[in-house]
Computed example of a mutant assay.
Amino acid sequence: MESTISPETTVGRVALRVNDLDRVRRFYETVVGLERLREDGETAVLGAGGVPLLELVADADAPVRRRTEAGLFHTAFLVPSRSAVADALVRIENDWELSGASDHRVSEALYLTDPEGNGVEIYRDRPREEWSVEEDGSVRMETLPLDIDELREQRTDAETVPSGTTVGHVHLEVSSLSAAREFYVETLGTRIRQRFGPSALFLATDDYHHHIGLNTWNDRTEPTAGRGLLWFELVVPDRAALDEARHRFAARGVETTSRENGFDVSDSDTINLRITVND
């Protein structure tokens, strides 16, 4: 289907509710390679090139996310070069543990888990002219082994991700793929870019391989409630796009909550989406 959200919409920030702010912040600084932009003891804001990408919100009493709860599968940080992925690999091998490394044909990705169980992906895109697009308009993605020995040779030993790093996509674990599709595709207006059988959808606002991933691989059955994803953000280009997005939710009876420069809305698993205007 054609996208009905503005194709200029991008992923903005991700916010995580954490028990141990200092420990989690150190992980994202020293292993992922984000820079600390500000911290007040309750919240730490991290980013790249001065642009905020991740907010960590301290909540010592937040319960550990149960195995049945929906929520975050991973936050995917998109770096602008293969050498930046190689540098991340070295930091992970030196200070943490790599949980996976994959060639997805459209991208090369490293996977790991933060100290409180939140999934993290660090990846770079291959040039779009190398992507394979199927007759139905979907983009071909696979999970193939990544040669990390060859990748490691590209390192420059940088301790931080470069300027231009963004949150490329957010991948969610949902309890119902059909309910999530109703929210993110039929209502929000994203475009399906790939289907993995009955268990996963990959969605984008334009012809990107995906800005939002949805899966039911781990049989989550309950709404999100504990530690982990607090909200994630989509940034629309102007007020007209913001008003149109809000109108689409209102037309389907989905409640939204106003905030400065945008609004918040919860999906079928109470995952909070923040839609913000870029002005």
Rank of each mutant, 00 (worst) to 15 (best):
P52A: 13
Q154H: 14
E93L: 10
F263P: 06
G164F: 05
S258V: 06
R181I: 03
N19K: 09
R128D: 14
L16M: 05
A179M: 09
H211N: 08
A240Q: 12
A60L: 14
F27H: 06
A180V: 01
R91T: 05
E173F: 04
G41S: 07
N218M: 08
E142G: 10
S99Y: 14
L242Q: 07
V64L: 13
V14F: 00
V235C: 03
D59Y: 04
F263E: 14
P127L: 05
A84S: 09
E129F: 13
G226H: 10
R193A: 02
D114Y: 06
R152S: 12
R23K: 15
N118Y: 02
V31E: 05
D40E: 11
R36W: 08
P7M: 06
R239C: 07
Y123G: 07
S107I: 09
A180R: 03
R239I: 15
R195N: 11
L172F: 06
N118K: 07
A225K: 11
T256P: 04
R124H: 09
G137R: 09
V161P: 00
V45M: 03
D95N: 13
V32C: 10
L53D: 01
W131R: 15
G33N: 07
D125A: 05
R65M: 12
D149M: 05
V133A: 08
V85S: 05
R26C: 12
Q154F: 13
D103W: 01
T276W: 04
G41L: 11
E255W: 05
F196W: 15
T270Q: 08
A250T: 13
S175L: 06
I271E: 03
A15C: 13
T165Y: 00
G100F: 02
E55P: 02
E116Q: 15
N118L: 00
V120A: 11
N272H: 10
A158C: 14
P223L: 04
L177C: 00
R193I: 05
A245P: 01
S107N: 12
T143V: 13
P63F: 06
T165F: 01
D207S: 15
R128W: 09
E260P: 09
A179Y: 02
R91P: 01
W131D: 03
N278S: 12
